[in-house]
Amino acid sequence: MDGALYTRMVKMQARSISGYSLGMVFYLWLFIWVFPSFSGSQSLNNLLRQMPAGLMKVLGYTAGITHLSNFLSGEFYSLLYLVIMAIYAIFGATGLVARLVDSRAMAYLLATPVSRVRVAATQAGVLLTGVATIGCATTVGALLGAHWFLRQGGLDAGRFIEVNIVGALLFSVVAGYCFLFSCLAPDERRALSLSAILTVGFYGLHVIGDMSHRFAWMNHLSLFAAFDPQKLVQGHGHFAASAIALALVAAILFAMGIAAFSKRQLAL
């Protein structure tokens, strides 16, 4: 890592990271705000119970809408959270390496005595800082939101933090393969397409795998299967195992990206 590069890059990314964080907190608060009207509706909960189990799982309401944790894990962490984090990971990773190579700005960074490994590691650090910041903002935002809007609470802070840690680690893996593509791809467009296609593919497999037992095997092919917010809030998830596995895979992917960048031929 190089301190000067890290500081400048984080400052450059600050606006985008704050945007994603604020967006995430805004939506969370919206969900928390409307939660009482959902949870108070007996007829809605009855309707949900009559739905096929597969559809319930896709919608994320296996436990009905009686607790804020279930509501958020089903409604927010099953889609919106994934979309916002994925967009940040894909665009962040592409912007930090492939765009700089494409625009030849990387020539200036590599014309300093900071080695390629350190430049790439710094960019990886900036990307992970972004994922961690958005993850932290989401966690703190949700806890504060629940406290302010609901008064009586409704969030099991410990389990909710676990959901967010696994979520942030999942997107460290997504950021990891996007970073690898960013380091390897010949241009920015290719890096962006590869990252987007793989992420949408993983998500598609996850959704189809959840819908029917016939396609359950598809879920095993999806990275998103490693993140089950509903099980985590209900205390049935494998928090430690998931967290360690995701952290390990993320570390391997980032190491591969850094190694690829250090050996790459660059027409800068």
Binding site: L100, Y108, A111
Partner: peptide, 8 residues
């Protein structure tokens, strides 16, 4: 460099 690319 011959072709300028900056962090715009």
């Amino acid at each position: 460099p011959g072709e300028m690319g900056f962090l715009e």
